[in-house]
Design a protein around this nucleic acid. Sequence first.
RNA 1: GCGGGCGUGGUGGAAUUGGUAGACGCGCGGGAUUCAAAAUCCCGUUCCGAGAGGAGUGCGGGUUCGAUUCCCGCCGCCCGCACCA
Length: 844
Amino acid sequence: MTDTGFDARFEPGQADARWQKAWDEAKCFVADSNSPKPKSYVLEMFPYPSGRIHIGHVRNYTMGDVLARYKKMRGHEVLHPMGWDAFGMPAENAAMEKGVHPGGWTRDNIANMKAQLKRIGFALDWTREFATCDPEYYGHEQALFIDMFKAGLVYRKESEVNWDPVDQTVLANEQVIDGKGWRSGAQIEKRKLSQWFLKITDFAEELLEGLGELENWPDKVRLMQENWIGKSQGLQLKFALSDGQSVEVYSTRPDTIFGASFIAVAADHPIAQGVAADNSAAQAFVEKCKAGGTTAAELETAEKLGFDTGITAVHPITGADLPVYIANFVLMDYGTGAVMGVPGHDQRDFEFSTKYGLPILRVVAADKTAADAPITEAEAGDGVLVNSAFLNGKTVNEAKALIVSRAEDENWGEGKTVWRLRDWGVSRQRYWGTPIPFIHCDTCGVVPAPKESLPIELPEDVDFQTPGNPLVRHPTWKHVECPSCGGQAERETDTLDTFTNSSWYFLRFASQPEDRPFDPEEVAKWLPVEQYIGGIEHAILHLLYARFWTRALKHTGHIDVAEPFGSLFTQGMVTHETYSRSAPEDGRISYFTPSEVERSADSATLKSDGSAVDVGRVIKMSKSKKNVVDPDEIIASYGADAVRWFMLSDSPPERDLPWSEAGIEGCSRFVHRLWRLFGQFDADAQGRDKALDRKTHQTIAAVAEDIEALSFNKAVARLYELTGATEKATPSESRNEAIRSILLMSSPMMPHLAEEAWSKLDGDGLAAMAAWPDVDPALLVDDEVTIAIQHKGKLRDTLTVAKGLPKDQMEELALASEKVQRSLDGAEVRKIIVVPDRLVNIVT
RNA sequence: GCGGGCGUGGUGGAAUUGGUAGACGCGCGGGAUUCAAAAUCCCGUUCCGAGAGGAGUGCGGGUUCGAUUCCCGCCGCCCGCACCA
C-alpha cells in the first residue's frame, strides 16, 4: 500500500483553525453577483447578540451551512451572509443592571459571537456583515419608513400600552407577570398613547393570496398565517337601543340570529364609556377591565365577566329586548367592538350566559327532529336551522346568505368581510431602537424629517439609572428646527419595533450601497431567498412582517419582488435533560449545568460532592434551568466537525434535538473512523467491485436528494452505511472511488476533516471548491428485489426475485414457499393480492 | 381559551404514494486485541416464548386483503397569540 502521509490521528485542535484561515485567504465564500453561475441565496435567521452563541444557533447555522456548501459544490454562486439583529431590550436591561452602554455591550457581544461562529467553520460571506444598530443600516430604514409614510402606509392612532405606575415606564408583555411589573411588582395599568402604525391590513388580501404560491413553505406555517390573517365573511348589523342610540355588531354566524340572547360591548366601546360616565358601578367595572394583562391569551383565559348596563337592544327580526352588557372578553380592535351573544352556538357566550342566567336557545340542530334537544355545551358545528322562523330547515350556509340579503333589503345590516389581522403598532417607548424619523411642530403638526438629515442617530450620552425613555430626558437630542416652518420643534422620541429591523435585512445582505438601502438590480439577482431557515417560533410575526415589508416596498417602487423567501424551513429546538436538587428545608430547587454533573447510563452525580442529583425531563435549553451546553467548550473538546455532525445526525431537523454527551462522543468517534478510512486510499489498488460501485452511486444520489430536502439525518445515516460497506470491502479502484466520494459528500458537513484529507490525497485546490461527485444512472437500479409473502396480512416469508417479475410468477413462487404452505394449512385460498416488486398477500 | 404541530424499542430515530415496522446512530451485553487501560475490531440487542408462534408504532374505535401512514373520539407534550427576539 502506498503511504498517503496520513497521521495516525486527525487533530481538530490544529486542523480547524488552519483550514478556516485557508478559506478566508482564498475568499472562498465571498459571493460574486456578477458570476454567470446560477445563484443561490441561503439565509438563516440572524441572531440577537445576547453575548454567547447558543447551541440552537449552531444547529440552525449548520443546516444552512451544509446547504450553502453543497450548492457551491453543485456549481452555484452562493450568497450565505450573516449579521446581527442588534436592537432590543436585553441591551437596555444590561445598561440598567450593569451600568454599561447598550451600544458598547452589543458590540462586545457581536465580537464574541462572531469569533465563536468562525470557530465552527461556517462558510459565510463576512464582507456583507452588518448590525441593525449601525446608523448606516437604520438610517436607510428611516428613509424607507418615510417613503412608506408618503405612500400612505404609516399613520398614528391611540393605542394601549402596559404602564408601570411605579417605574413610570411602558412594559413589554413579557415584563408583565400576573398583571404586575417585573421589577416594581406594581399592578400594571392599561394606558392610551398616541402611537405609530403600519397599514399591514392594506395588504391583508395580498398576504393571504400570496400564501398559495409559497409551495415550499411548511403547510403548518401557511395555515398559521392564514388563520392569523383571519379573513371572515359575516354580517354587520345595527341594533336600536332603548336609550335612543344604536349599536353595530359584527357576527360571522348571522344564521344564529334567532338564538341571540344578549349584546356585549368592549370596555372601551363608546357605549361602555357613556354608561360609565354617570354610573359608578359601571365605572368600576370598566376600571377592572383595564387592570390586568393586555395579551389575547390572558383575556381569553380570564373568567368571563360582564356588567349589565340596563340598556336593552331591539332584535331586528323578532323585536325582542336583549340586555346590553359590558364584557371583558370583547375586543375593541376586532370587528365593531360589540358582539351579539348566541350562547347555544358559541362557547364564550355559553359560559357568559350560564354565569348571568341568560336564556340559551337552540337554533341549529343535527336535523329538524332535534329542535328541542337540550344544549349542554355550545354547538358550533354544522346542521340545519331550527326555532328560526323563515330559516327553519335551511343549512347554516343557506341561512347565512338569507339573513344577509334580508338585512340588506330591510336596511338594518350588510354583508361584510372582516379581518382578524390588525395594523402593526411599531412605536416603542425605548432608547435602543431605530429613532422614528418624524418631528412634532406646534404649527405644522407631525412632519417627516428631511432625507438629508438621515440617519437620525441615537445620542451616545444617555443614562439608564432613572427609569423611562432616555431619549425623552436627553437635554438636547429632541430639540430641532421644524423642517417646514423653521420654528422650534421636537423629535419623535419613540423608536421602531425591532421587528422592522428584521423585515428587510435580507435585502441589505443582497447589496449595500452607501446612498440607498439597497440596489434593486442586485436585489433582483439574488432574491427571493432560495432557502430560509429559522425557528418555528417565528412562524407568524417575523415572517408575516417580512412578507409585508417586501410587498410594501414593491408597492412603493423600491423593488420588484413580492415574496422574500421562496422556500422556508423551520427547525426544532436543542433540548437537554435538567439536573436539580431540592433543598430539604424549604424545597427550593437549585439547578446544575451538565458540565457540573457526571452522567452514566443510570445515574447522575454532582462532580463536586459525588452524590446524586435528580434527573429531570428533556426540555428546551434555558439559562434558568441551567441545562445549557456551551458551543466553545464542546468544540474545544471534540472539534468543530464532531459538533456539526451531531447537529445533523439522528433527529430530523424540524424536530427537537436532545443534546447528549454520549451522542457527541459517538460523533467524534465517527470523525476519526472516517480519517482512518480516508487513510486507506490505495493508489495501487486494481479492479472493480460491482456491489460497492452500486452502493456508492446510490448513496451519492440519495445524499444529494436528502440535503436538498434538508433531511440531514437521513443523509447522515446513508453515509454511515456506505462507510461500513467501504470498510468491509477489499482494496480496489471501486473502493478508492467510494472513499473519495465519502470525502466529498462529508465535506459540507465536516469541512475541516474533508479539507485535511483532501490535501493529503493531493486533491485539486480546496475541498470546499471541489465539485460534487457524479452519479452513473446505470448503477442506481438493483436487478433483484426482496418481496414479502403475507398470509392474512401477516408476514410469513420473504423471497429474493428478479426485478419486474410478472405477477403470476410471483404468485406461483409465493404459494411454493414451505412457510406459506405451513401457515395456509390446507385452507381455501380466496384471493391473492400481488404488488409487483413488493409483496404477495394470500387471503383465505 | 383560541390557532398550529408532535407522539414508533432502554434511547435519538428510519420506513416510496396504504405494502417486510425498528434501517442507521447511541446505550447495553458478550467476545477479540492488550501486562493493563484507552482506542479499535467482531457478534448480539422490540417484547413474551425453550421453540413453533404470538403481541407490538400514546390510548379507544373505524375503513381496508393489508394502517406508523387514512377517518372519528380521547390523553400527553411543544410552539404562537400581536411590546421577548
